[in-house]
């Protein structure tokens, strides 16, 4: 069992194995856990597909399992895991973050209010938004 955290949430994968600095997930769980899916063209999200290097041998794929950590690093994205490898965080690269900001499209996010109701920034499309940070500390 491994818990996979991403920018958009978390997913428990009962058949996942995150030990030894590798993150092996059953092929069928990869999309739910990461937002990326395996296609004949490679590792894909939306219109973007990253080919999986054939020279990688069994570094990326082994039977019906995929080493998502290796793919993540191959894409230049940061990933970290807990000491025992039971929790993984798959993050976004500075290059991707910067490209998103340079497009001047406000990056979307979904967060809860105090009552636990979820709000996406994009729910408020059509209105001007003054987005402001604060903290209790």
């Amino acid at each position: 069992m491994v818990t996979v955290l991403t920018e958009s949430g978390q997913r428990d994968i009962p058949q996942g194995d995150g030990a030894n600095g590798e993150l092996w997930l059953p092929t069928g769980d990869v999309e739910a856990a990461t937002g990326w899916s395996l296609k004949p063209e490679g590792f894909c999200k939306g219109a973007v597909c990253v080919p999986i290097p054939a020279a990688g041998g069994d570094k990326f794929r082994r039977g019906d399992a995929v080493n998502v950590a290796a793919l993540w690093h191959h894409m230049g994205k940061p990933a970290r895991h807990s000491e025992g490898g039971d929790v993984w965080m798959l993050g976004e690269s500075a290059a991707d973050r910067s490209a998103a900001l340079r497009s001047l499209e406000a990056p979307d996010f979904t967060l809860p209010d105090l009552q636990g109701r979820m709000h996406a920034l994009s729910d408020y499309r059509g209105k001007k938004v003054f987005l402001v940070s604060w903290a209790s500390w």
Partner: peptide, 19 residues
């Protein structure tokens, strides 16, 4: 997402979702 490093920081976003 917005490269904020402190509070309070703000971003102005128009009706079309542009910064």
């Amino acid at each position: 997402l917005y490269h904020m490093v402190n509070v309070p920081q703000a971003v102005w976003i128009d009706e079309g979702g542009r910064i």
